[in-house]
Design a protein around this nucleic acid. Structure first.
Lengths: 364, 364
DNA sequence: CTGTTAGCGCTTTCAT
DNA sequence: ATGAAAGCGCTAACAG
């Protein structure tokens, strides 16, 4: 059995001592060098127990001698039909996404479920330009999780077109995709009821309305103008609470922020509070924004809640430190649920998974 | 030209109206249906301009009719030899990683560079058990970035064995891999000099020493015991500063935390401060830990810096809010640098890219 | 336990 | 502008 080298039928492998021309070493070459079949070499990596110790050793030796880098994951995933990776589409400059503690908590939830199953998690860049679609469909992932976006986001179509499992967080609803979200309308209605109790001049600090992320202070912002379903629902919730408190929505100033961060909310809140008739109650769509309002209030020498009643949204860790009355929801649990759903489990219903946490920032 | 159905040579495609047996639609089928060659169909997706408008339209129509999901990214990446994805190995339960603002800033830097180049970023799960290695080598990524780990982490070997571009952040140094890190020894020496100025009973709050993440308070922790190079260097830096200030390192209590978070540092700091001879100066290895110490001090009714001089590390945003004297470094820039290095650029030298930011938490 | 065969789905030649 | 052939590197499915 030793020395069966009848003839060199495959002459295209003439790089015997060609150390200068480094090409990718393949399993075939390793097998050849080890004097075993390709399958034995393959099994040595994928199911070592199916290979005799001797053969295994020879394959390993050959691999070391040839400096073989191990089975190519691309070829493997093509053959096996799975990439062991889940994709998360963050429809925002990623730098911003990572500055949002809510988004980070969500990612942590996704990541943990992925890790438990030996899956990786690919964060997919979506810059807003054309080409996002193709970048998404070219992503080698087994399923997609889409972070809150607008009704008209073309990326949704691109993801849906891949026919792979798809889970949307927050919204919009996409046929064929799971949705994981609390009932934002109900939650913000409840928060608004707290924020605006006893108010004389209410105001709202809002997340962006549309994908262009226009910002500014305006009155009478019809909720339907928002193409982010989450924003739309929250605006509608606040509007409902205000109506119940006897206010005309069209008179209420809404500060629309381009990004969900402290700085911009602070800037717009300062503008709001510097106006002729400054608000005495503000409902903010996130804790980040509420923190910005808090800073603006402090800078303006206003007492919270004495001069200004304030609520946030999400209940991030900082909210407790700052005594922020807010809507508690677990973005982390929702991240986990999204990942599970992407893996084929039926997701739990998060509609009612929220509560108003009363602390010190809203007037009792 | 209509109706060229000579003969059914390929009988394995007998699912003409088989709506019940859904299989993956391939480009070949689309081409067949469109009445063009596979290549025309392929070009329609990859280089549309090379295909006549008519052919393009026919292919698109066929794709819609067949509900074709687009070219399979796995096959594509096998053929093209690139996955358009970078892998980031976080050697910690991912949930923890995302709770660390420093790690998050780092990821944001990586993510932004990836996004600029149309690359995705895959977070690779490393749970600490065996099988991490294979999970890493199975990852379909074009290069790896490894977040601070220990000298003996087997994942390093696994990554190096892939022969793909590899960049390590923090440490350890791996031959063939780039290293992006500040000079932790120098930085912590400088921070220690500030923290321990005029101290009578100094102490250190440390990140974990080894991969087992044992925690507890101990004296005379030899820096060489730490297999995390970053921890080792920082311990050595503090030890150096203490020696200069006339202290015997072996007398100095070191609170070693299992994780880099506020809670554990707070717990150990409370223990430290509750001892018979509580420290009056603490150097912490991260701002998260310093915040924990700050809380413990407050709970113990101690003034900072009056009763307790304190320094942190990293200069996260919260550090400024809390008036923490700390070592400033841009983890975000370092993340960007790691990504660039993974893409083949020669990385900038970050050795001196730090500075001590003097605020109110350390005695002047 | 080992080997042979036959592709996974696509795209790079190089013709036509 | 289009097409035919030849694999990318690997592994299921079966023989031996």
């Amino acid at each position: 059995m030793a020395g069966d080298q009848h003839d060199d039928q495959d002459d295209d492998q003439d790089d015997d001592q060609g150390e200068h021309r480094r090409r990718r070493v393949t399993l075939t070459q390793v097998a050849q060098r080890a004097g075993v079949s390709v399958m034995t070499a393959s099994y040595t990596y994928s199911r070592p127990e199916r290979v005799s110790p001797e053969a295994r050793a020879r394959v390993h030796d050959a691999a070391v001698e040839l400096d073989y880098a191990g089975p190519d994951p691309r070829a493997r995933s093509l053959r096996r039909g799975s990439t062991l990776t889940l994709g998360v589409v963050m429809g925002e400059r990623l730098g911003y996404a990572f500055e949002d503690p809510g988004a980070v908590a969500f990612l942590a939830g996704v990541a943990d479920v992925c890790a438990d199953r030996g899956y990786g998690m690919t964060i997919l860049p979506v810059s807003g330009d054309l080409g996002d679609g193709s970048r998404v469909s070219e992503a080698a992932v087994d399923g997609f999780i889409v972070w809150t976006t607008t009704d008209d986001d073309p990326v949704l179509m691109a993801v849906a077109a891949t026919r792979r499992p798809m889970v949307v967080h927050g919204g919009p609803t996409v046929t064929g995709a799971h949705l994981v979200s609390i009932d934002n309308h109900a939650a913000s209605h409840a928060a608004g009821a707290v924020a605006f109790a006893g108010a004389r001049r209410p105001a709202v600090v809002s997340q962006p309305l549309t994908r262009d992320r226009a910002s500014g202070i305006e009155r009478g912002v019809a909720p339907s103008r928002a193409s982010f379903p989450v924003t739309r629902d929250r605006l509608a919730g606040y509007a409902g609470a205000l109506a119940e408190a006897g206010f005309a929505w069209d008179d209420v100033p809404v500060a629309v922020c381009a990004r969900n961060n402290v700085e911009e909310a602070q800037r717009l809140a300062a503008e709001l509070l510097g106006a002729a008739e400054p608000p005495d109650a503000v409902a903010a769509m996130s804790d980040q924004q509420a923190i910005g309002v808090l800073r603006a209030a402090r800078a303006a020498g206003l007492e919270v809640p004495g001069d200004l009643s304030l609520t946030g949204f999400d209940d991030v860790p900082a909210a407790a430190d700052l005594g922020l009355t807010t809507v508690a929801q677990s973005l982390r649990d929702q991240g986990e649920a999204c990942a599970r759903a992407a893996f084929g489990e039926e997701p739990a219903d998060f509609a009612a998974a929220w509560s108003v946490v009363t602390r010190a920032s809203a007037r009792p």
